[in-house]
């Protein structure tokens, strides 16, 4: 008189009934989602073939159009972009490590990418931490929410780049200024996701925790609110990983060193093949970081329906 189906595997639903059916439904939709997100577990060969054909057609049209135009600076061909990419990837230069001011050998592409990361990464981390903290605090405390909502509503529509004026007069448009802009972008994205995540935690789970002996706010936040809000917070982080690259490029158009600066700098020298090569760098870096984060997310949030 113990298990309904003693022989069933622990990882499968062993009973029929409404609960079991609901679980099966949500598993199904999860599978659809993860396929769309590029799951590696079940490779769709036909889909991949279509993807290859689509890419080839795109490159062929691009190549044909570039040959028809006939001027690299107006429309560089994919072949020219690839060769510019290889040149940047291998051309030796040095990279000066900030703070310690030591020069280390690097290639042009690597040096520019490191320059961008020097404001992308600190901006992303600091902005995200502050945004999540305030979002959780306001989502939890109705009083704080009431007090700060007018301010956050008013400030949020301002595009991060508009703050460039203060970045310039306060910090100067180097790594610090660019990090400041990136941080503002990361802040709002994470703030709203964390806020929504905390607001969305069911009253029921909080009541359950209370009946199991949780009787102070900090324990409730740590053991119920934060774990329950993690999917939403993770979405915020993942969104900001992508959005902050947009902001990096925009900030560098004002003169901060890095990949974005190379895009505009090369174009001013009519080396648009180099510009496009650096555009591709941003795309590649985004794909790698987003893919890495998704993998972490899938592992950490394995419990999710």
């Amino acid at each position: 008189m113990s298990l309904e189906t003693g022989s069933a595997s622990p990882r499968t639903t062993a009973e029929g009934g409404s609960g079991g059916v609901a679980a099966a439904d949500s598993d199904d939709s999860d599978a659809k989602l993860s396929t769309g997100a590029g799951s590696f577990s079940d490779l769709d060969v036909v889909g991949l073939a279509y993807g290859a054909v689509g890419s080839a057609v795109f490159l062929a049209i691009w190549q044909a159009a570039a040959m028809a135009v006939g001027r690299t600076y107006l429309l560089p061909s994919p072949v020219e972009v690839a060769s510019a990419f290889l040149v940047e990837l291998t051309a030796p230069t040095t990279f000066t490590v900030p703070l310690v001011e030591v020069s280390v050998p690097a290639t042009r592409l690597l040096a520019n990418l490191l320059q961008s990361l020097l404001h992308y990464f600190p901006g992303l981390v600091v902005g995200s931490v502050l945004g999540i903290s305030l979002g959780v605090a306001m989502g939890w405390s109705g009083r704080l929410d009431d007090a700060l909502t007018p301010v956050t509503r008013f400030l949020r529509p301002i595009p991060p780049l508009a703050w460039i004026v203060f970045a310039i007069v306060w910090i100067g448009i180097g790594h610090g200024g660019a990090a400041f802009i990136v941080g503002i972008g990361a802040f709002w994205i994470n703030f709203y996701n964390a806020y929504a995540g905390v607001e969305g935690v069911s009253t029921h789970l909080r009541e359950v925790a209370a009946t199991l002996g949780v009787d102070d706010d900090l324990t409730m936040i740590r053991k119920v609110i934060l774990p329950a809000a993690t999917p939403s917070i993770a979405t915020g982080i993942r969104t900001s990983i992508g959005q902050c690259w947009m902001i990096v490029v925009a900030a560098e158009l004002f003169g901060a060193p890095g990949v974005g600066f190379q895009i505009i700098n090369a174009a001013q020298n009519l080396a648009t093949d180099v510009s496009v090569a650096y555009m591709a760098v941003i795309s590649l870096v985004f794909l790698v970081s987003d893919g890495a984060f998704r993998r972490v997310e899938r592992r950490v949030l394995a419990w999710r329906d």
């Binding site: 622990p10 639903t13 062993a14 009973e15 029929g16 609960g19 598993d27 394995a302």
Partner: peptide
Amino acid sequence: VGLGEFADAYPKELSGGMK
């Protein structure tokens, strides 16, 4: 409650009765 072998499963993996 006879759930020893499901100790490491997440709730989403359980049927209503097991939950």
